[in-house]
Simulated scan of single mutants.
Amino acid sequence: MSSDDYIASQVDPCIRRYEELSRKYHKIHIGLMIACFSSFMAVIVLNVVYIIVPVIWLVLASIVCTLGGLFLFFFDCLNGYLEKSLDYKHKAECLGYEKHLYKAKENGFKGFAYRCERYM
């Protein structure tokens, strides 16, 4: 198996898989943060409406929204979706870097490959 075949069959699919996982975890993180922010904005709106129309259900609804927002925030923090996204992105970038470094060495750009290895 030549190096180009190995890169095409083994390295490139792994890079794509890591990039897909990074996007997936990033979307999950952003979705949870938007839901958390929306929940806290609903609490502010409910408190303003409570000042205008003092109904006890508005206070209870704002308590539920606060607890829901805190749950979403801690759920995201405890599962570490942002860290997972950044970790997979870093792995994909490292594999891409190593792939290009290997191709540079194979093609005879030894000076370029040496400079890249020195900074690696």
Rank of each mutant, 00 (worst) to 15 (best):
R115G: 05
F37C: 11
S62Y: 04
F112V: 15
L60P: 01
L95H: 04
I30E: 09
D4I: 09
E98D: 12
E19R: 15
H100I: 07
P54L: 05
I30H: 08
Y114S: 13
F71S: 11
N107E: 15
Y81K: 08
A92D: 00
R23F: 04
D76S: 14
S62N: 01
A113L: 03
H100A: 10
N79R: 04
L72P: 03
G68W: 02
I15K: 01
I56E: 15
S38A: 12
H26M: 05
L95C: 03
G80L: 00
S39L: 05
S3E: 14
L95D: 01
Y102W: 12
F74L: 12
F73L: 15
G68R: 02
D76Q: 11
E117H: 01
K27L: 11
S85V: 08
E117I: 03
F112N: 08
C14Y: 07
F74H: 06
A104H: 07
I15H: 03
I34T: 13
A61L: 10
F74N: 05
L32V: 00
W57R: 07
Y88K: 05
D5V: 12
V53P: 02
M120I: 08
A104I: 09
R23G: 05
G69R: 00
S2Q: 08
E98H: 09
G108E: 02
L101S: 03
S9Y: 06
V49F: 05
I44R: 03
L72K: 03
L82T: 10
I15V: 15
V64F: 09
N107Y: 15
L67V: 05
C14T: 14
G31F: 00
P13K: 04
D4K: 06
V53F: 13
C94T: 11
D12G: 08
